[in-house]
Design a protein around this nucleic acid. Structure first.
Lengths: 340, 340
DNA sequence: TTGTAGGCGTTATCAA
DNA sequence: TTGATAACGCCTACAA
């Protein structure tokens, strides 16, 4: 583990000044072809790589971004992984380091991230309508991007799935299959202002009005058991219910099981629509009719926006809202008009 | 976005030298109580946070670790997410930055990671029996930890699941249920020396000998379709086969489906055992009897080992091998002695 | 086209 | 118990 070569070593070996080496490293013009070659040779020979800490200190940038994913939030879903991979790929390609921080941060630690120059910018996940983190960062003018969005997003860079439309689509699909009693089990947190939860609820409510159907609504923690019990309860209370939409990714297996345990065959007697990744939708039996959640895309777009923002002084903030897409698989079928 | 305060500002405000402030920041002894308080007040007042780049440059450490997960490797499984979360939590708690790098690296870029001081150490995933990355890093004496292991691990820090024993357990379970024709669909890559694949194969082979049963073996890419087709093919070719073990996490749904499509009820007429996270095992229908894969634990243990190694000069390398645990759920049942 | 010199914000080594 | 001062490795005016 001998000490890595420094720019000084290179300069000495090539018989030039440090400045010249630096110029070449940073692709500045005004270097004689011969000199450049000599320096490049020296670099090669010494296996030299610039010391990033030093570069960053001198340049005043950290060249790294972080994703803040408070892991206590909602338990496992398959989506996170895709977000991370998408963002990490983009970051690496752009020469940025990608930090994943799953420990929840308070206002202080969040600001320190910037002040201490650990990161140039962050991607915030699990965003609420009134997110303190957003308020704090916005006020200080620190660069960041949201996966999700707030109530007031002017001047922010955001990327989100249009959950409201997603719910409309889902309801429409079921309605067109003849379903008139459609339940919706939402993520917990709508009241707390958790974006996806509250917007889905709005969408559901709008759909109910639009189609003239009666809402059947629950909020749950995203565990299989919860969804299992809730589904059973709903089936009991709502004998007329022939279909369900759920925002919970994995646990929605609980819903399927509960239905099946009641002797209800999915989809022949009971239809289910989810919102989840295409991957996961196919892992489930039966393969799920679902709004697909393009998590990897969202992760990479978020990273792109952030990095551009960091590099372009006059980058314009954008609020990207992805149009949801319904993929019909095997968990939905026409409603039996007779009874359930 | 006013410039953050520096140590100089603090020193000036407190009326002491930079050195003194530095001492206090680093909890050195020999500072008068009164001085300390004065400096702390100044720090508070200025909202000062040390500039990490500068600290790291001066100290010669980057205080960050990275996980190298080449994302082209095997496609999605739910396990990665858990690895990352586990490692990230530990890193943050220890004051380290956690970098996730999913872009595959060649020898050069890997070494540059160290030389450029981006990271102090890395956690390698997707390890092969003869892993070039390991050879390269070991030779240079750079600190790293493996999730997985090689053929020769002396002097390395590794953590791995004992796949060989896992396969023995799985076979034993099925054998004790009366199954005598047990198929095994492995991850592709055994021949290429991919650790989990090859060790599982060894375990399976040992189990077959031990129980005197005939191996029924396939290697596949981890997609639902592949596993679906392979299972169908196996069912055709091996009319006596009543059970299957598979190393593929999600796609094993394909196996279940194929069996069911043949009119084989799982588990009554066909048993399946997987190796996957407890989470995922429950997402699947029927809930899967499986060797549980403690990914989050492995991630955090790996990070712990690495960080200790970085901090303790005389840290002893350990090769940790986790004992597998079989959790019996609803995908295995006694073999029908009659026929399938 | 090239080099000199100062600075980035810390830590570490000596003196005082 | 404190404080100069020299690193750390690189970048960047400015000068030559």
């Amino acid at each position: 583990m001998s000490k890595p070569a420094t720019i000084t070593d290179v300069a000495r070996l090539a018989g030039v000044s440090i400045t010249t080496v630096s110029r070449i490293l940073n692709n500045k013009p005004d270097v004689a072809q011969a000199t450049r070659q000599r320096v490049l040779d020296a670099i090669q020979q010494l296996n030299f790589t610039p010391h990033v800490q030093a570069q960053r200190l001198a340049a005043g940038k950290s060249q790294s971004i972080a994703v803040l994913y408070p892991s206590d939030s909602l338990g496992f879903t398959e989506l996170e992984f895709e977000f991370f991979v998408g963002a990490s790929q983009v970051a690496t390609k752009a020469g940025f380091l990608f930090n994943l921080i799953v420990t929840p941060m308070n206002e202080q630690t969040l600001l320190n991230l910037y002040r201490s120059n650990q990161v140039d910018g962050v991607i915030l996940m699990e965003v609420h309508l009134n997110d303190r983190r957003v308020a704090v960062l916005r006020e200080r003018g620190y660069p960041f991007v949201l996966i999700g969005r707030c109530t007031e997003n002017t001047g922010l860079s955001t990327i989100d799935l249009d959950f409201e439309t997603a719910m409309l689509l889902a309801c429409e699909h079921l309605y067109s299959l003849g379903h008139r009693h459609i339940g919706f089990t939402n993520l917990i947190g709508a009241r707390a202002g958790y974006g996806p939860a509250i917007r889905s609820l709005w969408g559901y409510q709008r759909a109910c009005e639009q189609f003239g159907i009666e809402p059947i609504y629950r909020e749950l923690k995203p565990t299989i058991d919860e969804l299992y019990r809730a589904t059973e309860a709903l089936l009991d209370e709502q004998p007329g219910m022939t279909a369900m939409i759920t925002l919970h990714t994995g646990p929605l297996v609980g819903a399927i099981r509960a239905a099946q345990n009641r002797g209800l065959c999915v989809p022949d007697q009971f239809s289910i629509v989810g919102i989840l990744s295409d991957q996961m939708a196919q892992f489930i039996s039966p393969p799920l009719t679902a709004i697909s959640f393009p998590a990897q895309l969202m992760g990479s777009r978020a990273a792109q926006m952030l990095i551009r923002k960091l590099q372009d002084a006059d980058y314009e903030d954008k609020q990207v809202l992805l149009k949801p897409r319904l993929v019909i698989r095997d968990s939905t079928a026409p409603a039996r008009t007779s009874e359930r």
